[in-house]
């Protein structure tokens, strides 16, 4: 896959603190790229640099192999985290103004806007002032303004905050549709559920540094900790005595029919060995590997601990947090 956007050794220092420390990443063309990281990690700074709102102290950004210049503004669409519109300005006029600043001609802007307004049921609001719109409608307008000029690269900074669940779903569908139509999308978020759902690739930034980057499936594979969840019935003897040094019991709970437990397979022991060890002493009701969720990987990478590995961990890694 081609790389559409490449950041190379981006460093940015504000007075007294380093916002980005030699961050590099590659965003494949026609993918959805998740930019993850805790608050204050430097995501917004990186996004602002990609949008040429601020310049990096060191390093460079290449779009399709070319160093970014103001002429690339036309090929990028940007929905900032803190977004607003002129309250007193009419909706249609304002949308036209903002898309013209992106480089569209007035004629093209109006024509495309009419289409999009139709699609989002906003046409009756064309001549209304922005302050008369509900927040959801304002966000739709902002979304339209971001994508109207058919940019190759779309950047959404925390797109789902502030949207109601219905609009979040509309937005997700639109993002997927945009990718199908050939766009590349970078979005930053804390919402790991939407990352699982949408992202092909991710980069994780923590404390100004990139600590993880790659394809979501591959990352998950790499971070599997070989923890299996098992349900056993008709147990002949205590679970602990069934397991030798090749396995580690993380936790177990006695239920009506038997025992539910989490067991980690250590070293390179094949999973079959665990099955055999268990089958000889009990009846197996369920056996499945717990793949780590992006949430787990995120927390492990940032805090250094896997929530599934701890006894106290409440979150069941098998059931990744679903988006609301």
């Amino acid at each position: 896959m081609n790389t559409l956007l490449a950041a190379a050794n981006i460093t940015k220092t504000y007075t007294g603190h380093r916002a980005l420390d030699s961050v590099s990443m590659e965003v494949p063309e026609q993918s959805i790229f998740g930019l993850l990281g805790p608050n204050g990690a430097g995501k917004t700074t990186l996004i602002r640099i990609i949008n040429q709102i601020i310049g990096p102290d060191e390093g460079q950004i290449l779009l399709d192999g070319e160093k970014l210049t103001p002429k690339h503004v036309r090929q990028i669409g940007y929905l900032p985290e803190e977004r607003g519109l002129y309250k007193k300005m009419k909706v249609g006029e304002q949308a036209e103004y903002l898309t013209r600043l992106r480089g569209l001609s007035g004629h093209d802007a109006r024509k495309l806007l009419k289409k999009w307004f139709e699609r989002f049921d906003l046409t009756p609001w064309w001549n209304k002032k922005v302050e008369e719109l509900s927040k959801g409608m304002q966000q739709k307008v902002q979304f339209i303004i971001t994508v109207l000029h058919k940019p190759r690269l779309l950047i959404f900074d925390e797109p789902f905050t502030g949207f109601d669940p219905i609009n979040v779903n509309i937005l997700k569908e639109e993002i997927l549709k945009l990718r199908e139509e050939g766009a590349t999308i970078i979005f930053s978020t804390h919402d790991m559920g939407s990352v699982e759902e949408l992202c092909d690739h991710i980069a994780l930034i923590n404390k100004s540094q990139k600590i993880l980057e790659g394809n979501v499936q591959e990352i998950k594979k790499q971070h599997t900790s070989r923890i299996y969840e098992v349900e056993l019935n008709a147990i002949q003897k205590p679970l602990e005595s069934m397991l030798d040094g090749r396995f580690r019991l993380i936790k177990s709970r006695t239920e009506d029919q038997g025992i539910r437990a989490r067991i980690q397979i250590l070293n390179d022991t094949p999973a079959n060995d665990l099955l055999q060890a268990l089958l000889s002493e009990a009846r197996l009701a369920a056996f499945k590997e717990l793949t780590p969720s992006m949430n787990d990987i995120f927390i492990k990478k940032v805090t250094g601990r896997f929530p599934a590995e701890t006894n106290a961990g409440n979150s069941s890694p098998a059931i990744a947090e679903r988006p609301q």
């Binding site: 803190e82 607003g84 002129y86 903002l98 600043l101 902002q142």
Partner: peptide, 15 residues
């Protein structure tokens, strides 16, 4: 107004 309504970030990504 541009600053408090946060429209400024959209504008300065274009100009």
């Amino acid at each position: 107004e541009e600053k408090t309504s946060r429209i400024v970030e959209i504008i300065v990504s274009s100009v």
